[in-house]
Design a protein around this nucleic acid. Structure first.
Lengths: 195, 195
DNA sequence: CGGCGCATGTAACTTGTTACATGATTCC
DNA sequence: GGAATCATGTAACAAGTTACATGCGCCG
């Protein structure tokens, strides 16, 4: 029985700091984007589910609003949001999952599928598909680079900085491999188009 | 509305030669394994569906058995299998899909998720996860290398050989990036374990 | 004669996406 | 005042996996 990993992403992120559902989604969309993704349709129900099971604790907006009021001044966010925090049981489950061997990664590149069958179409079409792929990954790589620079600046402030740097390095290597391949393959296609 | 790509993999593969469902699965599991996957549960129903829509034609076992009989001698396979072939309508649909911009690739690496949260566990655990990842991709890379060698040997026999070589090159570059990262990251973890 | 690979299928289930609804706040 | 972003949710649906069932042919 294969089961969803959504719960572990939640547990993992809450192991660092308390977060709302929305904030969790943001983190996954930015920091994890090159190796993971989740949709609200999975996130919010799973948060409720984990709270029901006692793995995380739900702290409604009003509670931390009351705490914030006495301090006075302008709070960075006055909006209602529900923060979640990890319970000891949740931490236990996280640790158990971490120790288990991870599943094989799953990847799906529609671009390569199209390229595989591209002898049927004009080389310029596949060429433009690859250019779009290259452009998008150039941007993504730039984001990784700036995220890395930021982390190097504040290096050592947090336990897992070194690990995170290793993960960014993974993304950078892979994206560079993509980009090199794009250059070479676009060149190949251009030579084919010229004849 | 996001829709399954299963039908296009089928149409694409049948554009080269007639195949049975089982053979299609085999090809995806071997040649496409580093960028695509499909399960029987999607393949067989979609084959029936495409046949119903007239995109492919189903030729039952008995039909091509009868053709094969008069030739005499030992046929390579006497087992029942249902071959499918592409119809002009199917080819049309394939071409239309090829021209459309591909969707963004989707990837999911549970290993990196675990590594991200690994400050909670012993470095040796994540080290062994990475070793397993490395071993599995070493094997995969070796398969790509031998597939490449085979294609180079019979180069030019088929229209799409150059394209296929480009796709193999993609896999090789990416896998090499994985392996390099594994080496470096395992070294980093070993240093951390030594202290 | 037992096990493996060939070969086809499906039912039950889980997973995941999308579209929609709602409303506050912030910034221009 | 209107757009963007923050914020939470869900219902309907589509996609995808798994476990099971069945039986043949081939090889040792």
């Amino acid at each position: 029985m294969k089961q969803s990993k959504t719960r572990y992403v939640i547990l993992g992120l809450l192991s660092e700091t308390d977060l709302s559902g929305y904030e969790i989604k943001k983190i996954i969309d930015t920091r994890f984007s090159f190796f993971w993704h989740e949709s609200y349709g999975q996130l919010y129900p799973e948060l409720k589910n984990l709270a029901r099971l006692g793995r995380i604790r739900e702290t409604p907006a009003d509670a931390h609003m009351l705490q914030a009021q006495p301090a006075g001044g302008k709070e960075p966010s006055k909006r209602e949001k529900t923060l979640y925090s990890l319970t000891p049981e949740g931490r236990q489950e996280l640790l158990a999952w971490l120790a288990e061997p991870p599943e094989k990664e799953s990847v799906r590149f529609e671009l390569l599928l199209k390229m595989y069958f591209s002898s049927h179409i004009d080389a310029s079409v596949i060429h433009s598909h690859i250019r779009a792929f290259r452009d998008s990954h150039r941007e993504q790589l730039a984001m990784l680079d700036s995220f890395q620079a930021e982390l190097l600046r504040i290096r050592g402030e947090h336990d897992n900085h070194e690990d995170v740097l290793r993960i960014i390095d993974f993304g950078q290597r892979v994206y560079k491999a993509y980009l090199d391949w794009c250059q070479e393959t676009m060149g190949y296609l251009e030579r084919r188009m010229a004849t």
